[in-house]
Simulated assay, not measured.
Amino acid sequence: MIKQNIIVILTILLCMGCNSAQNSKDAESLQKARLCLYNGEASTLFFIAEQQGFFLKHGIDAEIALYPTGRDAINAMLNGDGHFSVSTEFVVVKKTFSRTDFKILASVTDADINNASTKISSGVFAKKSSGISKPSDLKGKNIATNIDTITEFLCGVFLEQNGMAYTDANVLNIAPNERINFVNNPDFDAFFVWETSIFNIFKPQTDKLNYFPMPSSMPFHFILVVDEKYHRENPEVSVKILKSLYDAEEWAQNNYEELKQLVKERFNLSDDYAVNALKRHKLIINFPYTLPRAMENQITWLSRYKHYGADEIINFSTLFDTAPLKRVKPSSVTIIE
């Protein structure tokens, strides 16, 4: 009996040793990737991939770092704090005037600030105390937004849609952590908003604010960018990241209630606002033909108001790398190359 017990114990210890060795081997085989993400609904596929184990499934040890804006996310990546980043195409367009050592791999969310099916419309909240009762009263006023992000561009489009030029108002930067205190900040007369959560904060303050919605729809993309040197040295990691996100996309399509709960809890939204957020963000991995056109429109707008010279404008196609996505989801690549 004692001999049998010893054999059993030795067998258990041997199995434990084998499992430990296998786990160690599995851990060593994982490829590390640091992801610098905009901390918003547009990054939901990454949160799903992490929560559901899709990164691990495809051999990626993903470390997620969150940033208040896409501008901060891509800057962190380019400063050496990450390998991949997510931001809107406008952030990337503006970044090309100073850096081009990155590649665009895919759009990870198609967004529309004024999706017709939602109850929430993006636009400008203006202080009644600043004498603003209609959009044209914004002329000469200080409008808070996040410079170098999509909100700067959308604010400019809002002004143009209301018969004004970007330069007719004073569009000023506001730090992300100061946005919720905009009403009490004497430096600003108005604030352009498109995020569901921020809209939720200001909308009830009808005693202090007038609200002017964006007159028409404005679709845009959140895109996945990779550091060029890292991508060149680790091309398979880019493919594995895209495979993980594709799995997340399919999960999102088949698990709506769980998806809504994930968005609701992560961003502290009510059921209604979570539903609206998902309507305004199409969680899909693609490389659409609309992306180059959107970037060209944005560079035209920047050239008009920011006085960039023609010699500073690059050919965006040199930044596109569609090969990884073609290996994962070829039908989703629709740009003309």
Rank of each mutant, 00 (worst) to 15 (best):
K128Q: 14
T322P: 05
A175M: 14
Q52I: 04
D189R: 03
A116Y: 15
N75W: 06
L283F: 09
V8I: 15
T145D: 00
A294P: 01
L302S: 04
E160Y: 06
N181D: 15
W301I: 08
N185S: 12
V108W: 00
P68K: 05
Q253D: 13
T88G: 13
N114E: 08
S136G: 03
Q253Y: 12
D72Q: 14
N276T: 11
G163H: 01
V237L: 11
E228G: 10
S331T: 13
L66H: 06
E63Y: 11
S317G: 11
I2K: 12
T69P: 05
N210L: 03
N276W: 08
T196P: 05
G131A: 09
N297L: 11
K329P: 00
G131N: 07
T69A: 05
P215F: 01
N185T: 10
I314S: 04
V8M: 13
F54T: 09
D110P: 01
E250A: 12
L56A: 13
S24V: 08
F182T: 05
L56Q: 14
K127A: 00
Q52Y: 04
L35W: 10
Q51C: 03
L245E: 08
A73M: 07
L325H: 04
K103P: 03
T118M: 12
S29K: 11
V108K: 00
S29T: 08
L154A: 05
N23D: 10
L269N: 05
K243Q: 15
E228S: 13
Y166N: 07
K141N: 06
I223K: 00
F158E: 01
C36S: 13
H83R: 07
I285E: 04
I74W: 04
E337N: 13
R34Q: 10
I113N: 08
N181K: 15
H58C: 08
T196K: 07
I336N: 13
F102D: 03
G156S: 03
F202W: 07
S216W: 02
T300L: 09
I201Y: 12
G70M: 00
K279G: 11
E195G: 12
D61E: 13
L45M: 09
Y166V: 15
I104E: 00
H281L: 06
A144K: 01
K243C: 03
A274D: 04
T149H: 02
M164E: 03
I299T: 13
A106M: 06
S130N: 05
S24P: 03
A21H: 06
T145S: 11
P186Q: 12
I335N: 10
L319R: 09
Y166F: 15
G309D: 13
D137N: 13
S107D: 09
V275A: 12
S130A: 15
N234A: 06
N184E: 14
C15E: 04
E152M: 00
F222S: 10
N142M: 02
I64D: 01
K95H: 02
L35M: 14
V171I: 15
N19V: 15
E63T: 15
S244K: 01
F46Q: 06
L154Q: 12
L302V: 07
Y230R: 09
C18T: 15
I150E: 09
N173L: 04
A116P: 15
P204S: 08
V239P: 05
K103H: 09
F188C: 02
T196W: 00
S98Q: 14
V91M: 00
S85N: 08
D81Y: 14
